[in-house]
Design a binder for these strands. Structure first.
Lengths: 128, 128
DNA sequence: GCTTAACTTAAAGTTAACTTTAAGTTTAAT
DNA sequence: ATTAAACTTAAAGTTAACTTTAAGTTAAGC
């Protein structure tokens, strides 16, 4: 029942990142896990989902700051209309960028393909 | 007739980057423009094409080092079979990554969409 | 010929995003 | 109860990719 929690190193191992990186994200305000009696960090499924979202965003060039703006502050429970509107605004901007990125990706792919062709042709020249 | 050349600042302006950035790429071995009698850099159409390729690669996460490996050294005229094979190998690796990147992009897009939905729902809750 | 914008180099400075370190504290296993 | 692994903080260190600076040199317009 939705009560599974993780220590920082479990989560880090699962996500393939350094525990320090997770602490760094916290330092930057992107997550805010709970603590045990002895002050050690405890991560919930929600924290894990946030982290995955952060990593996915990172994977194609969003800065941590942009990601923070999209997913909203970690502490607040997103109960304020203003905050929701702000997040929505950033999400919509990012969606526009995704469209652009898709186009750029296609262009780069075709650039690479034509570079590839050129190289193959040159190689054939050399072989003869 | 294919003889158009550019100064560093012309090229920088056209590409929307800092002249220092172009010098930095040269420092890293990615381009190697000619020089005037007075030692100032002269860029050809070929240099310009290389730069555009670098910028496009950058736009979605290739490091300068990876780019350098794909497009080959700036000085050599790509007349050596080994060098061509090396470039081809890196190009093919990058193409594989492009496929992955496309998938990730789609995943991120759907993550963002579901985050968006959640936010809209919560906003509606607050409004009632 | 003079001025000034654009260029030259090499080195230092900047920023984002970590990563490492040091010196201690907590938890888990025996 | 002891030991070792995992944790804690704050600060310093690292890396890539620039950007800025300083002290000159070259080129273009008048």
């Amino acid at each position: 029942m939705g009560t599974e929690t993780y220590s920082i190193s479990e989560l880090a191992r699962e996500l393939g990142i350094n525990p320090s990186t997770i602490r760094y994200y916290e330092h930057k305000g992107l997550i805010m896990p709970g603590r045990t009696g002895g002050n050690q960090r405890v991560y919930t499924a929600r924290d894990r989902a946030r982290l995955k979202l952060i990593l996915r965003g990172k994977h194609f060039n969003a800065t941590l700051e942009q990601i923070g703006e999209m997913i909203g502050p970690a502490d607040r429970d997103m109960t304020e209309k203003n905050q929701i509107d702000k997040s929505l605004w950033y999400i919509d901007r990012r969606m526009e960028e995704i469209v652009k990125q898709k186009k750029e990706l296609a262009l780069f792919e075709s650039d690479l393909l034509s570079l590839r062709k050129k190289l193959v042709r040159r190689k054939r020249e050399l072989a003869k």
